[in-house]
């Protein structure tokens, strides 16, 4: 669908390409309860947003709405210039999600899993093997690439998950507790790809306040599905962020 790709680019140019995410009045219900209520924020392209909040504050719901896995019930959500949920199809190829689940098939090998992802994201057949090999080397899994991933440790799964998310070379990375299952060595290994140096727009959901504030350009505090505060990360004190968890 080259048409869809063209219109993506067009939209980005028209909106100046400056805002990667623009959310206003976002509400998502879960039955009677509002998991997100009237949430609004903006994130310029290339910057990092850190989302803080206690369990149940709506962090993961927000991430899943941005990932096009949940549709917004009310409000305007624009991701990379596309309106959700109507134009979700046009933006899916540009998003990489690294969450709690690795989203890989347990009985396939790492190589097969990544090759499958590459095919789903439209990598031409003759390039799949190259892309997969490159990615396996980057996350240091080339030695175990032909083992079924059910034997992998949590850290290896996390690295594979990152590789899976990076295969489409996404413009936007959505990270749910990216360091939860990584040892410091692995964290260092992935940093060039999912850290600020990669130059990607990022949304990080985390309980790790110091890490989040250090990474972020913009910080968003959620409490019970509502925005408590949203401003440049430099203006948010760690104590203020800890306040959300009381």
């Amino acid at each position: 669908m080259p048409q869809a790709a063209d219109s993506t680019a067009g939209h980005l140019r028209r909106s100046g390409g400056d805002l990667a995410i623009c959310v206003s009045g976002l509400t998502r219900h879960y039955g009677e309860r509002a998991a997100l209520q009237n949430v609004g924020f903006e994130l310029p392209a290339g910057q990092t947003l850190a989302v803080f909040g206690a369990n149940g504050a709506g962090k993961t719901t927000l991430l899943r709405v941005l990932a096009t896995l949940l549709r917004p019930h009310e409000g305007d959500v624009h991701v990379l210039g596309q309106a959700l949920p109507d134009d979700a199809y046009a933006v899916r190829g540009q998003i990489g999600l690294i969450g709690h689940e690795a989203l890989v098939y347990r009985d396939l090998t790492a190589r097969e899993n990544l090759a499958f992802t590459a095919r789903l994201y439209g990598e031409p057949k003759n390039r799949v093997a190259t892309v997969v090999n490159e990615m396996l080397e980057r996350v240091h899994l080339e030695g175990r690439a032909d083992e079924p991933v059910r034997n992998f440790s949590k850290g290896m799964m996390q690295r594979l998950s990152a590789a899976r998310a990076l295969i489409p070379r996404p413009q936007l990375l959505l990270l749910d507790e990216p360091r939860a299952n990584l040892d410091p060595g692995a964290a260092q290994l992935l940093d060039p790809f999912i850290g600020p140096a990669a130059g990607r727009t990022r949304v990080i959901v985390t309980h790790d306040i110091d890490y989040g504030l250090e990474q972020a350009d913009v910080a968003l505090g959620l409490r019970l599905g509502r925005v408590e505060w949203c401003r440049p990360a430099a203006q948010v004190g760690a104590d203020e962020a800890r306040e959300l968890y009381r």
């Binding site: 896995l69 190829g93 989203l103 890989v104 098939y105 347990r106 009985d107 899993n113 489409p168």
Partner: peptide, 14 residues
């Protein structure tokens, strides 16, 4: 059960 369902939903496919 295999763990990949959401990856399908995330992919830019019809």
């Amino acid at each position: 059960a295999q763990g990949g369902y959401e990856a399908l939903l995330l992919a830019p496919i019809d």
